[in-house]
Simulated scan of single mutants.
Amino acid sequence: MDHIAVIGAGQAGATLVETLRKRGYDGRLTLWGSEDVLPYQRPPLSKAYLLGEMERTRLHLRPRTFYDDHDVELRLGTPITALDTGTRTLMHRGGSDTFDAAILATGSTPNALPDRCTGGLLGTHVIRTLADIDALRPQMTPGRRMLVVGGGYIGLEAAAVARKIGLDVVLVELNVRLLNRVACKPTADWFRALHRDHGVDIREGVGLDTLLGDGRIEAARLTDGTEIAVDIVIAGIGAHPETALAEAAGLTLDNGIAVDARGRTSAPGIWAAGDCASFPVGNGRVRLESVPNAIDMAEVVARNVLGGTEAYVPRPWFWSDQYDVKLQIAGLNAGFDDIVVRDGDGRSHWYYNGDRLLAVDAMNDPRAYMVGKRLIEAGRSPAKSAVADGATPIKSLM
């Protein structure tokens, strides 16, 4: 292959070009990104970087010299506008470019509040890109009033940072409870108590109706009819896979860009990896939005583009930092029918389907997380009674 084009300069895109070179590809290699900035870490954006505890350059996954030394053409600030799968041509604002293989690593895009809610007022933010945080950070000053819309991990992390800075925070979640789609009730209860202990006004079963103000946000009317004074609004209402380019190119979509176990899309020579891609697991399909998935899947796809036949088998794990709590999650909890609570060094919640262990949420309990992760990867399930007994040494569960 004379030219491999990687479209998307996030974690997956950066991992793809690095792996391709590491695996011996010596042809032309281009990395196309919509943002005019080197590939960077996203998790610190809403934490250390927002707090001013991390310099911008420390966000970079690699310095520019790395790409120069490995002969990677960086085409940053140059979004791909169209993809012709027949002629294998990329179109962009400056013209076009042909390729032998293209890998889509377009990531995901945060869901915005509907226009009927915002009324075009200034002061609404999402948390995804460096530009998003650079726009938000000057607004985060002590004493200001923030409304967080959405009680998922992004919303909870934003609330934690805002309280640490000294803002007054109201968080609304339209579902019956926090973390309704992603975690069990005991985990939601644990984090609700944590945030209320830190002064967050949490309102569940309540959403945003409309924002009020003259040019800028001054107040918010909630779905229960109450009005609250507000200066800043954070939309933490999930994200969707960035598939516009793939859809226009006629690629098959299924909760993202549908790929087979090797990362191949429905068009020959076109691959996908990371947040934007859904892949087969068991009898269904899964799409994961996480740094570990972006890295692991990108490495497998890069090897397969160069002739490998490896099936991608995810080893899901996630994390979230809130106040002085590190939540670590191993596995996927879909299909659980029982929760086992363990009080050990910290608190952990173990998800079971019947007698089979599916996932673990560990709050300030890294040993429970590590043991749970190893058990899940090995396909082993400890007895629920042993897990529930905090006096049972965690390592004995292995």
Rank of each mutant, 00 (worst) to 15 (best):
A5V: 08
I7F: 04
G10L: 05
G10T: 09
Q11V: 11
A12F: 04
A12P: 05
G13Y: 05
G13N: 10
T15F: 04
T15L: 06
V17I: 09
V17Q: 08
V17H: 03
E18M: 06
T19I: 10
T19S: 14
T19H: 06
R21A: 05
R21D: 02
R21W: 01
K22R: 14
K22G: 08
G24V: 14
Y25P: 01
D26G: 05
D26W: 06
G27W: 04
G27C: 07
G27R: 04
G27D: 12
T30G: 12
T30L: 09
L31P: 05
W32D: 06
G33K: 10
G33R: 09
G33M: 15
S34K: 11
D36H: 07
V37M: 10
V37H: 13
P39T: 00
Q41C: 05
R42H: 04
P43F: 03
P44H: 14
A48L: 15
E53W: 08
M54A: 09
M54C: 02
E55G: 13
E55I: 08
T57S: 11
T57A: 12
R58N: 05
R58E: 12
H60I: 01
H60Y: 13
H60G: 00
H60D: 10
L61P: 00
L61M: 02
L61S: 01
L61Y: 00
L61F: 00
R64D: 15
Y67L: 10
Y67I: 09
D68A: 15
D68Q: 15
D69K: 14
D69P: 09
H70L: 03
H70V: 03
D71Q: 14
D71E: 11
E73F: 02
L74F: 11
L74R: 12
R75N: 13
L76K: 03
G77A: 05
G77F: 05
I80V: 15
T81L: 07
T81P: 02
A82H: 06
L83E: 03
D84V: 03
D84L: 08
D84S: 09
T85R: 14
T85K: 07
G86F: 00
T87Y: 04
R88L: 03
T89K: 12
T89P: 01
L90S: 13
L90V: 11
H92T: 14
R93A: 15
G94W: 05
F99N: 09
A102C: 08
I103W: 02
I103K: 04
A105N: 03
T106I: 11
G107N: 02
